Simulated scan of single mutants.
Amino acid sequence: MSTKPPAGRRYTIKGVVFEAESLAPGLHVTATPIGHLADISLRAVNALAAADEILCEDTRVTGKLLHRYGITTRLVPYHDHNAAKLRPRILAALADGKALVLVSDAGTPLISDPGFKLARAVIAEGLSLHVIPGASAPLAALTLSGLPSDRFMFAGFLPEKQGERRRLLEALKAVPSTLIFFESPHRIVASLCDIADLLVGRDVAVTRELTKLHEEALRGPAAEIAAVLEAREAIKGEITLVVAPPGEAAPPAAEDIDKALLDASTHLPAGQAAAEIAHRFGLAKRDLYARLLALKDKTAQ
């Protein structure tokens, strides 16, 4: 009698074949590597091998991970385009006692992917929901940033349009936490310029290609990092952007305030110019109005 585990219920690590332990019925939300394929837990590998099916964003991406660990479990595409149609079938399979694993292309599912609605539906139906934690780009970026990690807020992708992006940054300006965003390499410079303008004085960390061969972390004032990236011929890879909390911002220099007031007054009445700069630097409008009048008097002499 063969002792070889049945197909679909085994996995291989460094040439050693292991028989997967059984998986409890329910949906297992499972974290996968964000780049380096070795960044996966033994529990996650076991779940992938033991599952009845694996729900994934892209079968090609998840297929590479399964190949690395000799896993042959059936892959079922689950993404924005088919999620609504597929959810009833998934819920029926769970109600029938199946053990299904949900993964994203990279990192922890439910963060910026369609798995959130499925998890909510599973809870609403009173079915079992499990989590197998692991890699997460926001947490990896926060660790590399060197910025305060005691309180942080993940805000997803920054908006593509500048007006919407600036409105979001304004809304988050007073949040007393380190901010974490996903951003495209095509928009990172523009986003850093907006951060430098609206979140004055805050340091940032631009982390790129986390855990991969060309991993990089650029740290410093937003305007300086924007200049470094703008000087490059091309910016490639997945980017996670970390922004220091308000308390980390250095107080604005007097000369910077004066310059901003005079620049604003070239196209705005004194009262509106003072209000705009007061909002930008978090200062009192009355004080800046008096300061602007004094600057104008000094310039006129």
Rank of each mutant, 00 (worst) to 15 (best):
3 T>Y: 11
3 T>L: 15
10 R>N: 08
29 V>T: 10
30 T>M: 08
30 T>N: 07
36 H>P: 00
43 R>L: 11
46 N>Y: 05
49 A>S: 02
55 L>F: 10
58 D>W: 11
60 R>K: 14
64 K>H: 13
69 Y>P: 11
70 G>C: 06
75 L>Y: 01
91 L>N: 09
91 L>M: 13
101 V>K: 02
101 V>P: 10
101 V>Q: 07
101 V>R: 08
105 D>F: 11
109 P>C: 08
113 D>C: 12
114 P>R: 04
116 F>K: 05
117 K>P: 00
117 K>F: 05
131 V>G: 02
132 I>K: 04
134 G>F: 12
137 A>M: 10
137 A>K: 02
140 A>G: 05
141 A>R: 07
150 D>M: 07
156 G>M: 12
157 F>K: 06
159 P>S: 06
160 E>M: 00
162 Q>R: 14
171 A>W: 01
172 L>F: 11
173 K>T: 01
174 A>R: 13
175 V>I: 13
181 F>N: 03
183 E>K: 07
192 L>H: 06
192 L>C: 10
196 A>C: 03
197 D>S: 13
212 K>F: 12
217 A>V: 15
218 L>K: 06
218 L>T: 01
220 G>I: 03
225 I>F: 02
230 E>T: 03
230 E>S: 15
241 L>N: 06
244 A>S: 14
245 P>G: 07
247 G>S: 14
251 P>Q: 03
257 I>D: 00
258 D>A: 14
259 K>M: 10
263 D>Q: 14
276 E>N: 00
277 I>Q: 14
278 A>I: 08
282 G>E: 07
